[in-house]
């Protein structure tokens, strides 16, 4: 069924510093690629289900997914996806609705464990260790790999308790003063402190949708995870809050790895080092962000980022 059009091995390390071409339009870029950037290609890859185009390897891999498949009962939602996430980098997952971005993200901190019908195969490692191994406690994993969900889901507790919950259960603060300072920095970094500092005892659910989402981000970074998974964190935010979160990502990626799902090409272009394009459960193309946006190598990627599908 799978027709492999490409002649080279796509998982082989590719030179990410291949000539960057200044282009005015994607059309030009396509022409240019065909002539200059990839002379070995006679035509653009067009198949679904072929091997991933681009470069799934990261320079300094921290999380590595190898041949990951996810099944929801009979629904094969993720098909043989391999992807490396480097230290200190932001990887953006893009793709049409229902293509499996959230599903893949949830594999990375084993949130799919709690879905009875979900079955995950393949190998995912964090810092060289298999996260699905028997000895791995999902609790410890999720403390290292934090997650911000697609829909804001604050606890029906106070704003303070929402942010303090993670540090409390993991015993991150020795006393109330330290906990206070964790809560304050987290809210500050999520760009929420100014709005809520006088009402920390109000219920988290009394905030607006965008504020709730920032509260959830604050709650996640309060645990100080090493990898942060963000599922469309800005879909409910205004441009100012979005900018604040994007700044936060820039700041966080100095220490952490971030995987973000987004439907905004501009956002992916602004915040991410690498972009992974998913289509119907396949990882179609991964590469450096500027490369993918200027020079998509797969027809589907190009159609998606130019707005022809999705």
């Amino acid at each position: 069924m799978n027709i492999v059009v490409m002649t080279d091995n796509p998982t082989e390390k590719q030179d990410s510093t291949s000539p960057v071409v200044e282009v005015n339009s994607l059309e030009q870029s396509t022409q240019h690629r065909l002539q200059v950037a990839l002379p070995e290609f006679t035509e653009q890859a067009t198949d679904v289900g072929g091997e991933t185009v681009g470069n799934v390897r990261a320079e300094n891999p921290f999380m590595v997914a190898e041949n990951v498949n996810v099944y929801y009962g009979d629904n094969h939602a993720i098909r043989d996806v391999s992807l490396e996430i480097g230290k200190k980098q932001v990887v953006a997952l893009i793709g049409p609705s229902g293509c499996g971005k959230s599903t893949f993200l949830r594999c990375l901190n084993r949130m799919n464990d709690s879905i009875d019908t979900a079955r995950v195969t393949g190998m995912i490692t964090l810092d060289g260790e298999d996260i699905n191994r028997k000895a791995q406690d999902p609790v410890a994993l999720r403390a290292r790999v934090g997650m911000v969900f697609q829909k804001p889901n604050p606890f029906p507790k106070s704003i303070y308790d929402n942010v303090a919950y993670g540090p409390r259960i993991h015993g991150l603060a020795v006393d109330r003063a330290e906990l206070d300072s964790i809560v304050h920095t987290s809210l500050e970094r999520a760009g929420l402190l100014k709005e809520v500092k006088d009402r920390l005892e109000d219920p988290g659910t009394s905030l607006s949708g965008g504020q709730q989402q920032r509260l959830c981000i604050a709650r996640t970074i309060a645990v100080n995870p090493e990898v942060i998974l963000m599922d469309e964190p800005c879909s409910a935010l205004d441009p100012i809050a979005t900018a604040r979160i994007e700044d936060l990502m820039d700041e966080l990626c100095e220490d952490y790895a971030i995987v973000i799902v987004t439907h905004s090409m501009q956002q992916a272009a602004r915040v991410s080092r690498r972009v992974a394009y998913f289509h119907l459960g396949h990882l179609v193309e991964v590469d450096d962000t500027d490369r993918v946006f200027t020079n998509p190598r797969h027809k589907l990627t190009e159609d998606y980022i130019t707005g022809r599908i999705g």
């Binding site: 949130m111 403390a143 934090g146 606890f155 919950y165 993991h170 709650r219």
Partner: peptide, 23 residues
């Protein structure tokens, strides 16, 4: 109890027991 609350707690690294008794 909305599954989102459960997921939020699990995602922060709460154990099943903690999810049950705290949320």
């Amino acid at each position: 109890v909305p599954p989102s609350i459960r997921e939020a707690a699990l995602g922060l690294g709460a154990s099943q027991m903690q999810v049950v008794f705290h949320h």
